[in-house]
Amino acid sequence: MHPQLQLLVALQDMDEMLRETEEQGEEFEGLGFKHGGLEELKKAREELASKIDPSLASWYRRLTGKFGHAVVPVVGNLCTGCFANIPSSFVSKTNVNKVQKCESCGRLLYWP
């Protein structure tokens, strides 16, 4: 996987964790979980984001604002964000030369 895509996936996972903690924190706390490290997690998120190429970070923010998720898995040659077919030339888990975008919706593509 392209190193920048690896960072983007980690960033999205972290954003998902922050969103879940803020939106459903009480539910988790009701199960016994505590979230004392929330501020540290936010700092770690900023540190991670600073390692991402500015143009990709900007694209990530734009897509997240528009769709909720900027990075989506490719399943069965389909972008799972818009369900557009991904050209076969894109379909390569070993393509490490660039971060691929869906030609239809622009989401960043991840092959799980």
Partner: peptide, 17 residues
Amino acid sequence: QNPDTILQMLQSRENLG
């Protein structure tokens, strides 16, 4: 696949609490 991504997520979660 991608154990590093999963491990990083779990470590972040443990840092949260």
